[in-house]
Design a protein around this nucleic acid. Structure first.
Lengths: 297, 297
DNA sequence: GTACGTTACGGCGTACGTAAGAATA
DNA sequence: TATTCTTACGTACGCCGTAACGTAC
């Protein structure tokens, strides 16, 4: 109630004629008359001075006209804010898996802030299996996660696939290994893994090792990637790292190893809550950027 | 359409429960649910994340919530402006008869401006018979006018009676007149009248003189009251003036005369257009002040 | 007289309440 | 299981269009 009446009233003030209002709504004259009457009865004020035939606005009508324009402007503003094309406002709550929370991501987020100045950003890093429930809980709007597995069959991650990346094995050059070490040889050295490595790489690795006839030998479980690499450099284990990240390293004491029979890969994907509204385009923009750079150095 | 839905939505955001909204509107739960659905469909946005049972607002919902509050605030503002109790805004277009457009009125108008700071004032002076049509034409909101006639029967003026005032006769002391001159004696000197004296005093005077057996002898017709008095002082005619105004004069050369058989009077009244809305209280205030002072010096 | 706006009447759409169903906590 | 929200159905209210009327220019 009331907004349509206000529109009619403002139009009347602008055109000066009920007829003209009726044509532009479009409606019949009686309908417009009744809308105006309805508005007067809702507000309990005489808005029109009907002593003359092209009725004039009363002084109360003048005052109401000003306020009516404000109301309609506010309604337009609301519709604009509701439309998916609107400039995103508010805060985008973004989750990122630990392993990708690096400088490259920071660049992307900075660019996001530049692209959408009105948008606040709230970042949360966590493991894939932590982030996904938080999206379901409505705590996050979107998250960059990954799933890992054998190169042939990575468990398909939910959301949009941003990139597929190989996971490489890194071992110390000084370690006594042949040119093409087998998986079991590497397993004897032991693996340096991330603790809650529930993104799939650990299980794929375990499956491969066990099918080769040995139990998975975990040499170390640490969060910090720098520590993982240091351990590997010291020959205390074999570390796993996404290919791009490994190539960006300046760790000459490490060598990359490709054991026969096992190629691990991971899929980076962007998961989002449904119904993001205007935030959707920001998420889309981020997805495109992250996919576009394809995490190439 | 839409405002009731926005109310429901804002209430939902505040209470967090459809149930609570339903109780406070008051409505049944299904009705509230449908209002929310309707709003979503009107805006073509998902406002609620229904994955959880006490449904949460989506990010789009957050944005819409902000704008919805603005809309409702604007609507409240409109209702306030429409209410008769609202602070008068805009311009009060006031007409005043020439004869009352004096310093005393200026005081009243100044006080009006002080009482209603938001109110603009547009003053028009004119004759009663000019002002009344302008009210009908919607050019004026109110006017202070008067009607004159014999003391017994002043033609009743439209609008509110503010004051009844006697009209006195002023003649030069030096004029050869008895202690109680008759109407015909005064008529022989002649009358100093205002030209468009259509407010009644002239016709009452003419009727009285002619019934006494002589034609109305007009010595001068001038607008300016000062000139009228100067002419009277010089013995060139008899001037007519409201009693209060005459008593405020410092014209020792003039004497006040009360001819037997004719007492003229005038009624000051305030006429207004219908449907003034919030301006009404300003008019009421002015009427009360003008009547309250009763034009006593 | 003509144009413009207002009432009168019939039809349709829409919003509500009641009651049953789905889904979450 | 209990609470909360959503869907289904019938009813009533409200708004519009057509037509007749009243009124200012």
């Amino acid at each position: 109630m009331m907004i349509t009446e206000l529109k009619a009233f403002v139009l009347l003030a602008e055109t000066g004629s009920v007829q003209a209002v009726a044509e532009r709504l479009p409606l019949t004259q009686p309908a417009v008359t009744r809308q105006l009457q309805r508005l007067e009865s809702l507000l309990d004020v005489s808005l029109l001075d009907r002593r003359a035939k092209p009725a004039r606005l009363t002084s109360a009508g003048q005052a109401v006209l000003r306020e009516a324009r404000k109301v309609l402007a506010a309604v337009d503003e609301l519709k604009r804010a509701a439309s998916t094309n609107a400039q995103p406002q508010g805060t985008l709550r973004l989750g990122v898996v630990h392993a990708l929370a690096d400088a490259q991501l920071a660049d992307g987020l900075e660019a996001l802030g530049a692209r959408y100045p009105g948008l606040g950003l709230q970042l949360a890093s966590g493991w894939t299996n932590e982030l996904l429930p938080r999206i379901d809980q409505g705590e996050l709007d979107a998250a960059v996660v990954f799933m890992a597995g054998t190169a042939g069959g990575v468990p398909h991650a939910p959301g949009r696939l941003l990139a597929t990346e190989e996971i490489v094995f890194l071992a110390a050059r000084k370690t006594a290994l042949g040119r093409h070490p087998t998986l079991l040889e590497l397993n004897q050295i032991g693996w340096v893994l991330t603790p809650d490595g529930l993104c799939g790489s650990r299980s794929a690795l375990r499956a491969a090792v066990e099918s080769a006839g040995a139990p998975l030998h975990i040499a170390a479980e640490v969060h910090d990637v720098g520590l993982q690499l240091s351990l590997a450099e010291r020959g205390l284990g074999v570390a796993l790292l996404p290919r791009q990240r490994a190539m960006a390293l300046r760790r000459p004491q490490l060598r990359r190893i490709a054991p026969p029979g096992l190629r691990l890969a991971m899929q980076v994907s962007l998961v989002q809550a449904p119904h993001l509204g205007a935030l959707q385009q920001a998420v889309d923009w981020l997805a495109q950027r992250l996919a576009g750079q394809d995490r190439q150095p």
